[in-house]
Design a protein around this nucleic acid. Structure first.
Length: 356
DNA sequence: CCACCAGTAAACAATT
DNA sequence: TAATTGTTTACTGGTG
């Protein structure tokens, strides 16, 4: 992520982790150990707003008493354990998602632990940092590998990407600085990010055009002067959430944890590959609005896989859908916190609170 | 079986 | 004229 997650809300009432914990101490220690084994150190664990940052205080002795808290919140944000250490600091996800994504694979969860995590419906926040922390900075930096690597190429570059053409087009357009591309540039983006298409039969271009014409999510706008033949294509804001949801339905996540390293040597997609999103997310001048939230959701989907969108709480989907409708009705409370959390998830700390 | 969706192929017109 | 772009129709296969 580009910036350290903030979310220090509410201070740290749980600094003394000796008080009753909403998770078994054993589980917390195992999470800490496992995160450490992946080359990162667990800096902080947030459970239901309670921050645990002193793991030495946690012993294995008193698990049972920890579970007195009913329906604790669990949300996990840490580098997925078997993922290579990300170039960004903090990741967020749900505990179950992490289980799927191997973060907790090395943890021998007992049956009761599993039951516990099933029982836990809210969220734990795990904050990690690399052993050698990189400088953290919100200021946009030039892309290190501008548009060289796919957003974590699914399986490998020579197999057909598990994305529908509408998703490919969506990603291409969203990645464009002006969020508008001529069809030729859409071809180019797809080829650049999914080399499979370099040698694929030419019919796929027909499919792209077919999709642009037929899919109501895409709109043609007036061609820029000097552009030559053809028009610019944009994503209809009214349908952006539809595309995000379609992205979330893709059967294979874009991040294959066990996949071979990409040519850049990392498996995690780099949000910097998506200049528009990165710029929007890094822009500290303007208060975050619909674009930022949608950008955050998109980055989340691209970074962690579309399934992560399913892991978001219902409130997040409410925020996303409202953003898609250009409704800025954050009246404070849950939605507002969710909007902020969405940005945090994407690695952004809003300089200003979401406006209404 | 049916409806729906996505992918593919192809025909055709318009544009450069 | 050729290539590209955009639209439309038809068909196929997968899925719920």
């Amino acid at each position: 992520m580009m910036a350290p997650m903030r979310g220090e809300r509410g201070g740290s009432p749980a600094r003394g982790a000796r008080a009753s914990l909403p998770l078994p101490r054993r589980l917390i220690r195992q999470i800490a150990r496992h995160v450490a084994s992946s080359g990162r150190s667990l800096r902080r664990l947030e459970v239901s707003g309670r921050v645990i940052d002193n793991f030495d205080d946690i012993d294995d002795a008193s698990d049972e008493s920890d579970m007195e808290t009913s329906q604790p919140a669990v949300a996990c944000g840490g580098n997925a354990g078997n993922l290579p250490p990300a170039e960004h600091d903090d990741d967020l996800t749900s505990l179950s998602w992490l289980q799927d994504r191997n973060l907790l694979r090395g943890i021998n969860l007992t049956k009761s632990d599993m039951e516990d995590s099933k029982m836990i419906t809210s969220q734990v926040v795990v904050k990690t940092e690399p052993r050698t922390p990189p400088p953290t900075c919100r200021v946009p930096s030039p892309p290190r590998t501008p548009c060289k690597a796919p957003p974590s190429p699914p399986v490998n570059a020579h197999t057909k990407p598990p994305y529908s053409f509408s998703c490919l087009i969506f990603m291409a357009i969203e990645a464009a600085p002006a969020r508008a591309l001529p069809v030729k540039e859409i071809y180019a983006w797809i080829i650049r990010h999914f080399p499979y298409f370099k040698h694929a039969p030419q019919g796929w271009k027909n499919s792209v055009r077919h999709n642009l014409s037929l899919n109501k999510c895409f709109h043609k706008v007036a061609a820029a002067p000097g552009l030559g033949k053809g028009s610019l294509w944009t994503v209809d804001p009214q349908h952006r959430s539809t595309l995000l949801q379609a992205f979330g339905r893709q059967p294979v996540p874009p991040v294959e944890v066990e996949s071979e390293p990409t040519e850049t040597g990392k498996n995690t997609p780099d949000p910097q590959l998506f200049p528009y999103l990165a710029r929007r997310l890094a822009d500290t001048r303007a208060p975050p609005g619909a674009d930022e939230y949608l950008a955050a959701a998109t980055v989340l989907a691209m970074k962690y896989g579309p399934a992560v969108l399913d892991q978001l709480p219902p409130e997040a989907h409410l925020v996303i859908s409202r953003c898609a409708r250009d409704e800025h009705s954050y009246s404070g409370g849950e939605e507002r916190r969710t909007a902020e959390a969405l940005l945090n998830l994407a690695g952004v700390t809003p300089a200003h609170p979401p406006h209404s």
